[in-house]
Amino acid sequence: MPEVIFNGPAGRIEGRYHHNESSTSPVAIILHPHPQFGGTMNNPIVHALYYMFQKRGFSVLRFNFRGVGRSQGIYDNGAGELSDAAAALDWAQSLNRDARSCWIAGFSFGSWISMQLLMRRPEIAGFISVAPMANHYDFSFLAPCPASGLFVNGDKDSVTPPEHVTSLVSRLKTQKGIVIEHQTIAGANHFFEDKAEDLMTVVEDYLDRRLAEEEAA
């Protein structure tokens, strides 16, 4: 899990990167929760997502948004953080030019940024959106959602009550062949305290199924 520093639009960005030696290994990037509320790339859920992708043969990157840890710059209300995410994906792709696919995963605030990046980067083939803050941020840009993926949240989430996520998913328009799945974790709050294992079981099952479908195709 080597530390990496790469250039972003506001200066240096700090990350952790695992490189898979296979030239065609898929790429994944993981986006952390809100920088102004303690969100970092070392968040336990971000950490678990990172290792999930690593164990499945991905080259995977997690990083700190601007102004977090050793990343330069200051919080920019989402616009700058989206630029950071794009720079992170560019950096990972530069090391994996023959990657057979690209995935993105985001938690909370990171989910909102990840879905915006998904709309801008057609090479992203799949997403995992954990605890999307559907009552705090506008997700209407997902019209239509360009890739299949999973939304997952807790039914005891007081930050974003579950009905807001259900409404978001129900409103999504999809193109032919795009499938959006939604899972709710019983007893889980926004941070999945004491429910991280349940969350990861759902997410891992989904990713394994998608990878098996990709292999079969």
Rank of each mutant, 00 (worst) to 15 (best):
S111Y: 05
G80V: 03
V46I: 15
K173Q: 15
L168M: 08
Y50A: 05
P33G: 07
N153D: 13
A125Y: 01
D157K: 05
F141I: 14
A87S: 15
S23H: 11
D90H: 13
P144V: 08
V152K: 06
I29K: 05
R121T: 13
T160P: 09
P132M: 03
R12S: 15
I45S: 05
M1C: 11
A134C: 07
H190P: 03
H136F: 14
T24W: 08
R56Y: 09
S148T: 10
G39T: 09
Y17C: 02
K55G: 15
Q183E: 15
V4F: 03
K156P: 00
H32P: 07
L117F: 14
T160I: 06
G149H: 03
Y206V: 06
T201G: 07
I128K: 01
M133Q: 14
S59T: 15
E3F: 04
S83N: 14
F191D: 00
P146S: 12
V4M: 10
I180E: 10
N189G: 06
I45Y: 07
F63N: 03
E3H: 12
P122E: 13
I45H: 05
N43D: 15
V60I: 09
F37T: 13
S108D: 04
A217E: 14
N135Q: 09
L142M: 14
E204P: 03
V165M: 05
H19G: 01
L168Q: 02
N77P: 00
G80Q: 06
G73F: 00
G126F: 08
I104V: 15
R62N: 03
S167Y: 09
V152A: 07
V27C: 10
S59M: 03
T160E: 09
Y137G: 01
M119R: 11
V202P: 06
A79C: 01
H190G: 04
S94F: 05
K173Y: 00
S108P: 08
N135D: 14
P9H: 12
E197T: 15
Y51E: 12
I178Q: 00
P35E: 02
G78E: 05
I13D: 04
W112L: 06
H32Q: 05
D84K: 05
P161R: 10
A10Y: 11
E21N: 11
F141Y: 14
Y75S: 09
M200I: 09
L118Y: 13
G187C: 04
F191T: 03
V130T: 02
L95Y: 07
T40N: 08
A48E: 12
G154R: 07
I185A: 04
G67Y: 02
F127C: 06
F63K: 02
A196V: 15
F58A: 01
M41N: 01
V60F: 08
P132A: 02
A147H: 02
V159I: 13
R16I: 12
A86T: 13
R66W: 04
A188G: 03
R121Y: 12
S59R: 01
N153E: 11
P146K: 08
R62V: 04
